[in-house]
Amino acid sequence: MSNIFSFSGRIRRTEYAVTHIILTTLMSVIFFVFGVSLFAGESAAAGATIFFVVAMLMASWISLASGAKRCHDRGNSGFFQLIPFYGLWMLFGDGDHGSNYYGNDPKGRISQADMYRAAVPAQEVLVS
């Protein structure tokens, strides 16, 4: 797994989906505990509120970072994840084959342009 806090690089669909499943599950548990702590008393609610805000900020950061890396895998800027329903496109769409501006293919595939460059030797300069 790549660095979950970093916005650089590319990730596969599987890592994107697993990250969001874990985040959703974890935040559901934290939200439930936060809701229960509101009935426990004022001091417990104050501590739970601080913990809840910090957890939400971390979850938001991780979600945005994985979304940006998934956008990079599709050859787009990380800001594309702000487009409504683009998350579905990131979840079901295949990434770019081979290297792109954002890094190497996480699946290890080679693009046709890279294969052509590897197959054709560099032209030698003829000096007369």
Rank of each mutant, 00 (worst) to 15 (best):
F85W: 03
L91R: 08
Y102C: 05
G108W: 07
A68K: 03
R109F: 00
R74Y: 00
L64W: 13
D73C: 06
N100D: 12
K107V: 02
Q112K: 15
V53R: 03
D96V: 14
Y116S: 08
P121L: 08
L64E: 04
K69P: 06
G95N: 00
I83C: 08
G75E: 12
G67V: 05
P106L: 11
K107S: 14
V54H: 03
S77W: 10
A113E: 15
S77Y: 09
M115V: 02
P106N: 07
Q123C: 04
C71Q: 11
R109K: 11
R109S: 12
S66K: 02
Y102G: 00
G108H: 11
S63F: 09
N76C: 04
R74K: 14
A113F: 13
G75P: 09
M115H: 06
Q112T: 13
A65M: 06
F85G: 01
G67L: 03
G75L: 04
N104A: 15
L91W: 09
Q112M: 14
D96A: 09
N100C: 11
K107M: 03
F85M: 08
V54Q: 04
D94R: 13
G78M: 06
I110K: 14
R70D: 05
I83A: 11
K69E: 01
D114G: 01
A122R: 13
P84A: 09
W89A: 08
V120S: 12
L57E: 00
D114Y: 00
H97D: 13
S111T: 01
S111R: 07
G108A: 13
A118Y: 09
M56S: 12
P106S: 11
R74W: 01
V120M: 14
R70H: 06
N100L: 05
A65I: 06
A119Y: 12
H97G: 10
A118E: 15
N100Q: 14
D73H: 04
A118K: 14
Y101K: 14
L88Y: 12
A55R: 07
K69M: 04
L88N: 05
A68T: 15
H72E: 02
